[in-house]
Simulated scan of single mutants.
Amino acid sequence: MSNINIRPRRELRIATIAAAAAVALGLCSAGTANADTVVPLPGGAITKTLADGTEVTVTMTDESATVSPSMGSTPLHRNVWVSGSAKVEISGGSGAEGGSIEPGYIVGCQLALGGETGADAGIGAEWKGAAEPAAGGAGTVSIGPGEAASFPILDLEEADDFGGESHSGEHSFEGASGSVTWADSTMGVEGCAGYAQARSYVNVTVDTENVMSTVTLWGQPFSIG
């Protein structure tokens, strides 16, 4: 089993990230960003059977978010620390050769990111038609009203074929199981002049002797103010 633990350094916090406007969301279970607010999240699990009979189970546990006020006190900035653990187990079929685990978050500004968890939860009709700006540098995403962005948790470095640095948001594993744990990963959101939501996802790509397939587990949406 291949495991990885991610614990980013606190210096990734950005001094200019400010508190969000306190707008409650009916679909979410979280509080607002007027003070540090710890949001426990339920995680989830899914099991999918691939075409060759291979059974893939993805679970997410110990998921939480801490919505933190910033020093600037402007409604355009938010800061969130996220934690969780994802695990994949593969059985049956033609035999597991390994795969990869990619955890991350979808962040939306004035968008509904859906309300259910699991494999078929999706991310809401509004998101599907929204713009998809890329994540910004230094642990931030920049989005405006009606926009959403993906925020990868992992940033794994390795040498490429030419001796330079290569970065990846996927943790590779061999065999029938693998896991990833992240703790207090900083996620800054800039530019959203309205309510903002986030929800976790875990993309697991599995290789067997006959099939390559990706299984996605969605977490529960939560408000970040």
Score class of each variant (00 low, 15 high):
Met1Pro: 10
Ser2Trp: 04
Asn5Phe: 00
Arg9Thr: 06
Ala15Gln: 10
Ala22Asp: 13
Leu25Glu: 10
Thr32Ile: 05
Asn34Trp: 03
Val39Met: 02
Pro40Glu: 06
Ala45Leu: 04
Lys48Asp: 14
Thr49Asp: 02
Glu55Ser: 15
Val56His: 06
Thr57Trp: 00
Val58Gly: 00
Val67Tyr: 00
Ser70Thr: 09
Thr74Gly: 09
His77Ile: 03
Trp81Arg: 09
Ser83Pro: 02
Ile90Phe: 07
Gly92Pro: 00
Gly93Phe: 04
Ser94Ile: 00
Pro103Asp: 04
Gly104His: 05
Ile106Asp: 02
Gly108Ser: 03
Cys109Met: 05
Ala112Pro: 03
Gly114Arg: 05
Glu116Gln: 14
Gly118Ile: 13
Gly122Trp: 08
Gly124Leu: 11
Trp127Arg: 09
Ala134Thr: 12
Ala138Thr: 11
Ser142Thr: 11
Gly144His: 10
Pro145Ile: 07
Gly146Asp: 09
Ala149Gln: 06
Ser150Leu: 13
Leu154Tyr: 00
Asp155Tyr: 02
Phe162Thr: 15
Gly163Cys: 12
Gly164Tyr: 10
Gly169Ile: 01
Ser172Glu: 14
Ser177Met: 04
Val189Arg: 03
Gly194Phe: 04
Tyr195Asp: 14
Gln197Arg: 05
Asn203Arg: 08
Val211Asp: 13
Val211Tyr: 03
Trp218Val: 01
Trp218Tyr: 11
Pro221Trp: 07
Gly225Lys: 01
